[in-house]
Amino acid sequence: MSITDTNATGTADVAGWNAKALDEILSNDGGRPVLFTHARILTMDPLIGTIAGADLLFVGSLLVGVGPGIITAAGDDNAVVVDCTGMAIVPAVVDTVALAGGRGHRSECVATLTPGNSTDFLVVPDELAADVPGALATLVSRPEQVRALVAAGRPAVWAGTDAPGRVTTPEAGIPAAADLTGSLRVGVWIDVEDFLHQELTADGRYDETRGGRPHAYQGSYWIDGDRIDYLDDLGFWAFGEFKGDELHHAGYVMKLG
C-alpha cells in the first residue's frame, strides 16, 4: 500500500502532509515564528501536563509558547502554520529519570516541551501516542507514520521521510586530526594557580605538565565550536570548554600563557 493511500491507522495522504508548510519552514531564516496547531501535546512538564487541542509556537531553536489559543495571533505574527489535527506532539528527547519520578523539582526536569526550552519534538498520529514512550517507539517501529521530527527548530523527518537538507549524525569512529596551524587556540594553556600547563599543538596533540611533572598526560584533541575533546594515550576520554579567553577543563580554568 502506498503511503499516499489510506494507511493502517486510517490516516490518508501521509506523503503530502503539510507540504507547503515544510517549504516555508525550510526557507525560513529563523526569524519567522512557526506554529504547530490543533494537536494533543504531551509536554512532560509536571506543571503543564498534557493539553488537548493545543498549539506549539517556536522561533528558531527556542520554544516560546504551548497551549490552546495561540493560533489566534498567527496571522498577526506572520507565523508558518502546521495543521496537526489528529496528531500528538511529544518531546523528541525523553528524560527517563523524570519518567520514573526521579526528579525532585520541576526545574530539574529536562527535555520537556516547556517555553524556554529547545525546540525538539516528534509528531505522530494520536492513536500511536498513548504515552510518550509509545509515541517515540513509532519513530523506530513505524517510521513511515512519523509526521515530523523537529530538532532545534529544523525538520529532520517530515511525512515519514528525511527532510531536505537535514543534519545527519557524524560517522562513527575517531576522526583524523585537523591541521590547526594559525588557530588562536594553539599554545600553552596555564591554570590560574600555575599547577596545570596544557600545550595544544597544531597537529592535534596535547601534552600536560602537572605540578612540574612533565608529560603527565598526552594524547589527541579535537575542537568543535567551543568544545574540546581529548583522547588520552592511556585510552580515556575527557573534555573542556572555551569560554572567552579561558579554557575550562576538569575543574581547572586556564589562559594562554
Rank of each mutant, 00 (worst) to 15 (best):
P155A: 08
L62C: 11
V110Q: 05
V64T: 03
A73H: 14
A172T: 15
P155M: 05
A100K: 01
I89P: 02
N78C: 13
L136H: 12
L62S: 01
A111W: 04
V82H: 07
F121W: 10
Q145W: 14
V94I: 13
E108C: 06
A92N: 11
V140P: 01
E108Y: 00
A177V: 11
F121S: 01
L139G: 13
T138G: 07
A74P: 01
T169W: 15
Q145Y: 15
G101F: 14
V82Q: 00
E171D: 09
P170F: 03
T161I: 14
E193I: 13
L139W: 05
V140F: 00
I174A: 02
C109P: 12
E127P: 14
D120P: 07
V167L: 15
M87F: 03
I190G: 12
R185C: 10
G153M: 08
L122K: 05
D95A: 04
G160M: 13
V90Y: 05
S61D: 06
G182Q: 13
D191A: 02
L128R: 06
P164A: 14
D120V: 02
A88H: 12
L62P: 13
L139E: 06
G60A: 03
R103C: 03
M87C: 10
S141R: 15
L196Y: 06
L122P: 07
T72F: 03
L63A: 09
P175I: 08
L200A: 08
D83T: 07
S183M: 09
D95T: 10
C109H: 11
E171K: 15
V124L: 04
P115I: 04
V82D: 04
P170G: 06
G116L: 07
E127A: 15
I71R: 02
A98V: 07
G153E: 12
A129Y: 12
A148S: 04
E171S: 14
D76V: 04
V132K: 12
S183Q: 05
